[in-house]
Design a protein around this nucleic acid. Structure first.
Length: 408
DNA sequence: AATTATGATTACAC
DNA sequence: GTGTAATCATAATT
């Protein structure tokens, strides 16, 4: 009962106090007006004083403020004022949107996180689970000591990045926690003089966290960038091209020349070759792709090589009656008469071997220079490389003549 | 330093 | 997906 009466009275003051923000003087009761008949007057004055003190507390020095705060806390009117503030807050608090805004997990952040995890930067310590390293190990088949140096170099740099990343992350986390606890303490202390709901504290904390996580995101971003640069410098096979080992090339060449009529290894064959050579299947595919096109473009140049491997495999193949023998360069399996795709048969290759291979694709220097990166070679250009069908070519070949260059 | 060899990548066709 | 052809970027050679 008494409480309510006080509350009501206090509320009156509180309401009046609202416009007070503009000018506190209006609220301050005049002491001389003290008619002494009304015992509400001194209280009014009290409250006015309290409010005045609260309003000006920030203008004072820390010690002063601390003392004032303590005084206020001990003030007999404090509970009443507090409850008033509670009520006001309750009324106005409704307007404060409870913006839950459950962060929809920033996709950008997720991407960064995933990448860092994949690169072994964010993952478990020294897990070696670095996908890159694992892939590299798989690719090398464990038989390439030459590039292991580079990989260790790469790993060193990566762990350096990793170290920095973790150190920074920890720093941020620590700072975040420190700041959060600081703010929470502040709010908790303030909650003695003004009502602060746990929700508000929560909100504040989440705001802080969001700010810090945006800083973290920057860190992650730059770390990702660093990793990307490192990758492109060390792992981009194109930049760091290494020739295959001699044995690997040998194995590949052996297969190529012993299947010259159809140099298209099946998936299984590729896998086996890859295993034998300690390279990946796609590397085998690349090799055959390159080999086919380069062989086709200039058979003459590969004559010797073809000879070597033909002889090599010849030992294993039973040589039937080989009369004429005017061309010892004939690959063993060439007789099967398969087709080397697109440009004709291997028969043509064999025939071409007797020619000056260097001159076959007509000089392309001019073309090359005139070819702007933006203007793609058209069918016309490609035609220069497309061999004439054997049926048309053979008479010429018999005559040991080259087809005249395109320009005449 | 210039040239050639070579593995990888790209664009395109099927 | 496979292939070719052109091209790139580097390694190796001259």
């Amino acid at each position: 009962m008494d409480d309510q009466g006080r509350l009501l009275q206090a509320r009156g003051v509180g309401m009046a106090g609202h416009p007070l923000h503009g000018g506190p003087q209006t609220l301050t009761p005049h002491p001389m007006h003290d008619a002494s008949s009304d015992n509400g007057e001194p209280r009014k004055q009290d409250i006015g004083d309290i409010l005045q003190q609260i309003m000006t507390i920030t203008d004072q020095s820390l010690d002063e403020a601390q003392a004032k705060k303590h005084a206020l806390n001990c003030h007999r009117m404090k509970p009443a004022l507090f409850s008033v503030l509670c009520e006001i807050k309750e009324k106005t608090g409704l307007s404060i949107r409870n913006n839950q805004e459950e962060e929809p997990v920033d996709p950008q952040l997720m991407r960064l996180d995933n990448m860092l995890l994949a690169e072994g930067v964010a993952g478990p310590e020294k897990g070696g689970g670095s996908a890159a390293a694992a892939a590299a190990a798989a690719a090398s088949g464990g038989v390439s000591p030459d590039n292991s140096i580079e990989h260790s170099d790469y790993r060193n740099k990566l762990s350096q990045i990793r170290q920095i990343y973790h150190a920074e992350l920890e720093k941020y986390e620590q700072a975040c926690n420190e700041f959060t606890t600081h703010v929470m303490n502040l709010l908790r202390e303030q909650s003695r003089t003004r009502p602060i709901s746990p929700k508000e504290i929560e909100r504040m904390v989440s705001i802080i966290h969001r700010k810090f996580s945006s800083i973290q995101m920057q860190l992650k971003q730059s770390t990702c960038e660093a990793v990307m640069i490192l990758r492109s410098r060390f792992l981009d096979a194109r930049r760091k091209r290494r020739n295959f080992s001699k044995q690997a090339t040998e194995v590949l060449n052996e297969y190529f020349y012993s299947h010259l009529s159809n140099p298209y290894p099946s998936e299984e064959a590729k896998e086996e070759l890859a295993k034998k050579c300690g390279i990946t299947v796609s590397q085998v595919s690349n090799w055959f792709g390159n080999k086919r096109i380069r062989y086709k473009k200039n058979i003459g140049k590969f004559q010797e090589e073809a000879n070597i491997y033909a002889v090599k495999t010849a030992v294993t193949v039973t040589q039937g009656s080989h009369s004429g023998a005017n061309s010892p360069t004939t690959p063993t399996s060439a007789g099967s008469g398969g087709s080397f795709n697109l440009s004709g048969s291997n028969d043509m290759f064999m025939a071409m071997q007797g020619l000056n291979g260097d001159s076959y694709p007509p000089s392309q220097d001019g073309r090359k220079q005139s070819l702007h990166p933006l203007s793609r070679p058209q069918q016309k250009d490609r035609a220069a490389y497309t061999l004439t069908p054997l049926t048309e070519l053979s008479p010429l070949l018999c005559a040991s003549r080259l087809p005249p260059p395109a320009d005449g």
